[in-house]
Write a protein that binds this DNA or RNA. Structure first.
Length: 115
RNA sequence: CAAGCCGGAAAAGCAACCGCUCUUGAAUAAUAAAAUCUUCGGGGGAGGAAAGUCCGAACACCCAGUCCCGAUCCCGAGCGUAAGCGAGGGAGAGGGAUUAAAAGCAAAGGGUAAUUCCCUUUAUCCGCGAGGAAGAGAUGCGAACAGUGACGGCCAAACCGAGAGGCGAGGCAUCCCAAUCCCGAGCGCAAGCGAAGGAAAGGGAGUAUUCCCAUGGCAACAUGGGAGUGAAACGGCUAAAUUCUUGCUCGGGUGCAAGGUUAAACAUCCCGCCCAAGGCGGGGUGAAAAGUAAACCGCUUGAGGCCGCGGAGUAAUUCGCGGUCCAGAUAAAUGGUUGCUCAUUUUCGCUGAAUCCGGCGAAAAGGACAGAAUUCGGCUUAUUGCCGGCUUGGGCU
RNA sequence: GCCUCUGUAGCUUAACGGACAAAGCGCCGGUCUUCGGAACCGGCGAUGGGGGUUCGAUUCCCUCCAGAGGCG
């Protein structure tokens, strides 16, 4: 689970982030982000019933995405809100594949620190 | 060994690293004190179905008609110098009673906060069996098709009513066809024929035209009694979760997104400061923004659960004592990753007489259904392997 | 999350518990026409799945499935 400061909670903020312009994606994952005025990056995760009709499977996808983001947090730039949307097929992947996918998508959206 | 029936408990384990939530203790910072922030430590953290939302309740709010009580408030004849008292009238938070509609009625008895749930007994039905299923107030308007023919025919004292008519003791009959039989008015010298009436093997249509015993009778059958149902009577008894009539019971509705508390920004007015446009700070306003955004409470201690002991009861259940507080999240915590072990599956090898079985070894795969959302009691559905008891069948001794 | 509602031919709607489940549009075939349309005639085609009550179920009851809606 992410620390509370890195969670994106309010519905209005999520809608703002989904309308944002920093867009990245791959076949298994989509990313929408918008800049905020805070010194942290905030995330939320969307897994629809189309991905899997079973609630337990959806919860597992969300937990793995959160773990992948938490692992990548030191390399992530601050100052934006990000929504990660799972696409069909992600349920069949293991943790390492999800990590690779998350890193690829974040790099395409330009959210990785340029050090 | 195979196929079944009933019941029970469980819901893979261990370690390492990295995290989340609730609660609690300490320290530090700030403060009048606290809320709060950070760090460290202790403790708790999904289910038997958390699911479907099919029943039932708790809890919260809202709403009808009639009647009663009613804190409090208003008017007030009159009395009094006055303060005040005050018949009577009106409003009325709230409390109680009742119910028109809607809804309900589940064998008998019991349990429960309550139920279509659970328990005991049981008519009946299903199964070879272990066992399982099972009952919907009363009445009976109406009831397709088939069939010559189907919830009921015919007569009727007494009583009520001006009458039409109502009610109805009691009597007769009891689906249709039917070989044949009984009876025998009458006809005939006789053999015999034989109306009406009665019974009937068997057959027919249909979901459906009660069952048993005793006595009498050549027999058909009659009479009486009984079983189950029913309070009883009675020529009663095929029968439905809808409809109609009727009896009894019962206020209704919405659901924690119920409901409650606090309450901005912006607007506008005043004051102060900054050279000014304008900005900053403080205070106020209400009929508008707004009782809105948002936050908090409800929110987890409850008709509790679990463990132990004892009592009542066939049982469901219940009573007493002691111990234990056993999830409270909110784009939604209770986890993520790695390694090992165990259950399981597949493949290969060895072994023995052994492609099928057992043992040993190796490799690979790899956890059933499924995620609390106000709370609880049931039901139903999904689903993994295990344990105990029992039944039927087969084989061996 | 809480609470409701609806499933009938390809589509839109009917059907007191009673005969082969009705109608319109559509589809197929035919007649007519040089061809097509219109018109006329005929045909195909359905009660979401399973169970119960009943002699008999689209209808009543239970259950599963699918779809839709309301509530800050």
């Amino acid at each position: 689970m992410l620390p509370p400061a890195n969670r994106l909670k309010k519905e209005k903020e999520i809608k703002r982030a989904r309308a944002g312009k920093m867009i990245g994606g791959s076949g298994l994952l989509a990313c929408r982000a918008a800049a905020n005025d805070l010194p942290v990056a905030r995330f939320c995760f969307i897994v629809s019933k189309k991905i899997s009709p079973k609630a337990t499977a959806r919860n597992k996808i969300k937990r793995r995405l959160r773990a992948a983001i938490a692992a990548a947090m030191p390399r992530i730039a601050s100052g934006f809100d990000c929504v990660l949307i799972a696409r069909f097929g992600l349920a069949a992947k293991n943790y390492q594949e999800i990590c690779d996918c998350v890193n690829l998508v974040l790099a395409r959206a330009g959210l990785i620190k340029s050090s």
